[in-house]
Design a protein around this nucleic acid. Structure first.
Lengths: 270, 270
DNA sequence: CTAATAGTGTCTATTAGACAGTATGTT
DNA sequence: AACATACTGTCTAATAGACACTATTAG
């Protein structure tokens, strides 16, 4: 029919195949401090995610992940970058593709496939002015063999959802996730959040990913707390320090002011 | 403007946002046997991928991964299942989403975003009739810090390509892959193949994924060979047997006929 | 007998887990 | 002084790496 690639392309009819819209959802994770009333105690570290309150349909007044439509002339990975730049003032953020969600009915408007990305930032580097409808929610996860319960709160509002886990294959650790309780989050965003948490939990063990959420200077106690909230379990000090020791550099700065021995400040060793 | 979700949806104009087509590409991996001329020696195990020769434009006469367009009323993950069912006769195959490739110019026809999946099968369970334009290619990978060179061959044809690795972030093991040599593979499929190999290499260590490529009965020597070709390095027998021992069950069957001590056949312990 | 693989025993090195102890700031 | 955290030493348990050895078959 055609004699060359050029000729074929010249006559190509782009309506040959069905078309759909694509969006991207971005999980922006960070670490928060919750001050304690005891002058001796350390501030408790909290793990948090940025959510946006929807002011338009669909899912009006529900919370969702920052995101938006992919433009026809924009690389897939440029979409989350563009949206992040609008949402925050940080560039050169850690950004990683998570998963592409494509159930037929995941969006009530029409067929929309969404590729989710996970971003890790140090909140303190953000300009103070967040978009007025955006808010950081602290994350609390309870997980057992069958279910994952997630509790999010931002001081004034609470969001709870629950996900059922069923083993997909006997040969892997992979689960099929199914939302069984959710009334405040839009779309399939509970699934996205859970996938991101799982990914982070996994990667914290064999990468230096966590330093994207840390400030330039930090104590080993703080760093350990961050590991502990993400992994959801306590770690032993000597073991933690052994493992982390070749990833950090000790500075001569100290952090004083707590009612206890001051600790040295460390930096990430690039 | 609207007073309810229903009302909004009733008036929703689905042409509000730009639309594009989506495809899926499937990396089907399996294990092959290459017989040796020495009656004593074991057949060498080879790692292989299924490719299809294109008989239409674009990329006419080049090789590519099996794949196709996503239907508008089909869940994303159902597309690779449908295509696999056409390409092979196996159901209940191991299938896992790999990555979504969405560079603007990845397809010369128009904007197409593609979600790739990785499937692992035991070739021996396939019906003998493969699609006439499909062929298994044995995989050979050479990797160093900067480049990945892949050599594929199916007995009559050879495909070589080379990919440049550059570290994306200092905090992870993540690389940016860039194709620097490729003349026989269509689209960005060299990237897909390399991503799949990396994923498999990684997952073989902490999952039982490899058993999806094994026959029902196998010797530990064969299993070890499969690990070795995927990891690209020799393993020590006692260490391998220690690790694998709680994943397999010894049967009372033996494999005889090689010019050496017969070995017991094992099964995967579910 | 020989070549080739199958399979095991054991020593050593490395890493992870556990606990106890010392150090030092603020109130 | 008391509390809370910072930091280290050391013992033990578990795991990984290495090598040597024995076993068994077809030709």
């Amino acid at each position: 029919m055609y004699n060359s690639e050029e000729e074929f392309l010249k006559h190509y009819d782009s309506s040959n195949f069905e078309k759909l819209s694509m969006t991207t959802d971005i999980l922006i994770f960070s670490i928060s401090d919750s001050p304690t009333n005891n002058y001796r105690k350390l501030n408790e570290k909290l793990f948090s995610v940025l959510l946006v309150k929807r002011d338009t349909y669909p899912f009006k007044d529900k919370w969702c992940l920052p995101g938006g439509f992919i433009k026809i002339d924009e690389d897939l990975e440029d979409a989350p970058k563009r949206i992040l730049a609008n949402e925050t003032n940080i560039h050169d953020i850690y950004l990683e593709q998570l998963y592409t969600f494509g159930a037929v009915n995941r969006d009530p408007r029409m067929r929309i496939v969404s590729t989710s990305y996970m971003a890790l930032i140090d909140k303190n580097r953000l300009s103070d002015k967040l978009n007025s409808n955006a808010s950081w929610f602290n994350i609390n996860v309870m997980e057992d063999e069958k279910e994952i319960s997630v509790y999010l709160e931002n001081g004034t509002e609470e969001i709870k959802f629950k996900i059922k886990k069923t083993l997909k294959e006997k040969t892997t650790d992979r689960y099929k996730f199914e939302v069984i309780e959710n009334d405040k989050l839009a779309f399939d965003h509970p699934l996205v959040i859970v996938s991101g948490i799982e990914r982070l939990k996994n990667k914290i063990g064999y990468t230096d990913i966590v330093f994207n959420m840390m400030p330039e200077y930090f104590t080993l106690g703080e760093l350990q707390q961050v590991y502990e909230i993400i992994l959801g379990k306590k770690l032993l000090d000597p073991a933690f320090r052994r493992i982390i020791s070749d990833k950090v550099v000790k500075t001569d700065k100290k952090q004083t002011g707590g009612g206890h021995r001051p600790s040295y400040l460390f930096k990430y060793k690039q």
